[in-house]
Amino acid sequence: MAVVATTEPGARPARAGRRASIPGWVGTVPFLAYVGVFLLLPTGIVIVDALKNPSGAWQFSSVTELGNPLVRTYFIGSLKLCLISSVIGAVFGAILAYAVASGNPDGVVRRLYLAASGVLAQFGGITLAFAFLTLLGPVGLLAHASWFYDFPWGIALIYAYFEIPLMVLVFMPAIDGLKVQWREASENLGASAWQYWRHVGGPLLAPAFIGSTLLLFANALSAFATIEAWESQIAYIVPQQISISLSSEVGLSNINYADVLALGMMVMVAIIMTGYALLQRRASRWLR
């Protein structure tokens, strides 16, 4: 294996490679073992269990439970919430990212917003639901908003709180990639501000924008803590239903309900991520 490594294109003639008798891949065994047990194995368990009944026999029909009208409601609920919150997050996040990026690259405003975005994008969860509860909930300081517990708009507003910062983080590099010369060159050739965005800025940012939106969508899809703290009595979306079926024995009999739901989500995320990767590749063709 070490010989393979040294003849690989781009590989340096490793001094140690000739001397060592252990193959190179041995060095990665601890990592591979860890990932194998705590990432690949659980994923495999989900897939296998989704395709088996509790007694252990293969039963592909359990997957058809995804077509069950009740189950479909949760998936539609998830889709609605994610679509609304990711589009809101993407549009407003892009505006904010542009405002931040057009300032001093070394300035305090930029640092403050990026650090805050880092915290808020990752740190949503329980805390976030509490924060909005104190602002707009039944005892809210600003208003006792009647729509606070409405699905999907009430919760979408709370989701926007972590989706916008996430957009700032993932979209900022694309905006920074817009070179000043492109704007100046288009202006020089006679373009108005609107024509610049229509013909140059817009098309250049479009793949990154759509890609980032997909990432926001995936992020919202798997969010669970926020909605659980917002309303734990009624299940609207798939993750809540997974939680219920994991923590109680109730559920559709005869199949591994949680596994089937998880598999359904996995397929959704996989579709989104593939789209994201394709768009990103397109974007990088221009920006690199």
Binding site: K179, Q181, W182, E184, A185, S186, V200, P203, L204, W286, L287
Partner: peptide
């Protein structure tokens, strides 16, 4: 100086 062509 450089890089002023529209890359798309």
């Amino acid at each position: 100086q450089a890089y002023s062509l529209f890359p798309h």
